[in-house]
Design a protein around this nucleic acid. Structure first.
Lengths: 242, 242
DNA sequence: CCCTAATGGTCTAATGCGAAACCATTGAGG
DNA sequence: CCTCAATGGTTTCGCATTAGACCATTAGGG
């Protein structure tokens, strides 16, 4: 209890002296596989890459990857089969996400929402301001259609998948990765509040406008529509977790 | 040479199956300490936090932290003194950054520039759209003044420090961290091209307009001015590293 | 003048993790 | 029916990293 404030407030070193790694290799690998499933990148029934290849891509030893997979098996997310044409498959029925018990609190909520707003509105604008190839255009339209055709149980995953496609359309791998990460954080929070049919329809209308703006190359509109789209759920979250 | 395309293009898994960690603990710790120095968070002559505290904050063992510090000593960045009121101090004269030998190439350049544009323009807008406290306002003005008073040798660090202060003003720790990271990447590229006096003056005028917009709460202007500010160096880089 | 607290410097035991080899299983195709 | 290739499953060895205790040095305060 010597001094109330240590030395000086000397800002910004909180950002640069933050922890070097979020957890051990095992935990981070589990998190990443969960990301693939919950963001709809790995679809139910689909096979994950073979262990040897996946371990290489994740930059992790096969032993560590297998431990992660095993814990996902026990949690009911995946199932593994041996032999040629075997592999690890995403289950058709997935466990319900736990309400996360309000961990993090309000500070973390504002942090995630601010970052999401910046990343995703910026991604929409950047994607619109670029000449997209056939692949990107097809990808956007396909993901949009999947959202429209989704029922309540699948919506969260397909919604995430569309937003990821928008980030991909910027051509920036780092930006795409950042969007995937922040989306995992916000999805965790969104699991605490119910997903209703009317919201779903409204969301689809906004998606339509966003994708149209991007395909038309209207960067200003893309940003505006995305910002409005996000502010909806942001307000919802702030209300629920006040 | 069985199939030209493996299975399906199935996009977005490149983002989610990217490497879990950027390197080993030692390398990442070195990178983080360099970040503190090169972004002007740790000022020449200043003392870093004590090893025990710093190791805790970085989430790394003291042994690993000390190895990182030792390699920075050998590179001429810091010096350590024992005894009470000792510590590790940033050198007054710092080594010149190596021209990085064009590693990464064009794809990496576009990636970094896109991400920077999104993060920093978004940060300026978010900061302006928030009611800032006395600390944030003072911080912004102080960093701006330091830029104006800087000569060529210090400019890059003080410039980074100002941009970091803007990110901090958003109140989002994650966003601040992301800005710090992308800034390290772009600074590495900027080291390949010379820093001229006229650019410096022009940069200061833009900084002035950005900070004013933020302090006035004019989000639209803050975004616009920041976007223009960034597009200048972006064009410069694209020209040099074509 | 000595004592003490805070710092960097060193050592050791335990563990996480990766690399690589090898085993077991499966289904397609000859 | 057999063979083979691709997959998950297992084991072993070695290095990286951690946690914790302990040593050495320094400057200020009694």
């Amino acid at each position: 209890m010597a001094q109330p404030w240590q030395e000086a407030p000397s800002t910004a070193d909180a950002a640069v002296f933050r922890p070097v790694r979020a957890g051990n290799a095992f935990e981070e690998t589990v998190e990443r596989l969960l990301q693939a499933i919950r963001l709809g990148v790995a679809v139910p029934g689909e096979r994950l890459p073979a262990e040897r290849e996946l371990a290489t891509r994740l930059g992790v030893s096969r032993v560590t990857l297998r431990e992660a997979i095993r814990s996902l098996q026990q949690a009911g997310y995946v199932e593994s089969r041996r032999g040629r044409y075997g592999g690890t498959f995403v289950n058709e029925v997935l466990p319900l996400p736990q309400p996360t018990s309000d961990r993090g609190g309000g500070a973390d909520l504002a942090d995630a929402l601010t970052l999401r707003q910046v990343l995703e509105a910026g991604a929409a604008e950047a994607a619109a301001g670029r000449s997209l190839g056939q692949n990107d255009r097809r990808n956007l339209r396909a993901r949009l259609a999947e959202c429209v055709a989704a029922d309540v149980g699948e919506y969260r995953r397909r919604d995430s998948r569309l937003h990821l496609a928008i980030a991909e359309a910027t051509g920036s791998a780092s930006l795409t990765a950042a969007v995937a990460d922040v989306r995992m954080r916000t999805n965790e929070l969104l699991d605490a509040i119910p997903l209703l049919e009317p919201n779903l329809a409204h969301s689809n209308e906004q998606h339509e406008r966003i994708v149209t703006a991007i395909l038309d190359g209207d960067a200003e509109a893309a940003r505006r529509e995305m910002a409005e789209h996000l502010s909806g759920t942001a307000a919802l979250l702030r209300g629920f977790l006040s």
